[in-house]
């Protein structure tokens, strides 16, 4: 067992983990944060995307010990504490950007990370930013629309 201390969604969490514990299972099973999903086990599908120090990573291909001393943000912290949806969540809701919802946490976290990097993307850029996130339900069209809409809302709010 290795002791780690990870700041998860703003709260410092200390735990003993086996070195082989993947970050996603640490989040799901030890911390009970089940919003992060496992889809493929091979870092292909992106359902497990979380933020590590503010950037998107695939938590199925990361050991919990690698997150020691760092900040992790999961889908559970994307909305405001009072339940107000993040502009991305709101846009996914309005544009029917999800069907079964399983890939959605990963899509949202990937998009949230990308929009920090590029707040005013083109459609092609949004599609490229999602190359590591697979969805089997939507055909992506409404996901892309949702992200473009949210980008507009977010950059509009800032300016």
């Amino acid at each position: 067992m290795t002791q780690i201390a990870v700041t998860v969604n703003g709260t410092r969490r200390e735990a003993d983990v086996e070195p082989r514990t993947l970050l996603v299972y640490f989040l799901r099973e030890q911390l009970g944060l089940t919003g992060t999903n496992v889809g493929c086990d091979t870092s292909s599908c992106g359902a497990c995307t979380v933020h590590l120090d503010g950037e998107s990573v695939k938590s199925c291909t990361l050991l919990a010990v690698q997150a020691d001393g760092r900040e992790v943000m999961t889908i559970e912290a994307l909305a405001e504490a009072d339940g107000t949806l993040h502009p991305l969540q709101d846009a996914f809701h309005r544009h029917h950007g999800l069907q079964c919802g399983y890939c959605t946490p990963g899509m949202l976290m990937a998009a949230a990370s990308y929009l920090k990097e590029n707040p005013t993307p083109t459609e092609a850029e949004v599609r490229e930013s999602l190359e590591g996130n697979l969805c089997r339900c939507t055909g992506y069209q409404n996901i892309v629309e949702s992200i473009l809409d949210a980008a507009g809302q977010m950059s509009g709010a800032k300016s």
Binding site: S43, G46, T49, L52, E55, S56, V57, K58, T61, L62, A110, S113, Y114, S129, E131, G132, N133
Partner: peptide
């Protein structure tokens, strides 16, 4: 290489 998440790690 890979995708944005892979490039972040």
């Amino acid at each position: 290489i890979g995708d944005p998440q892979v490039r972040h790690m």
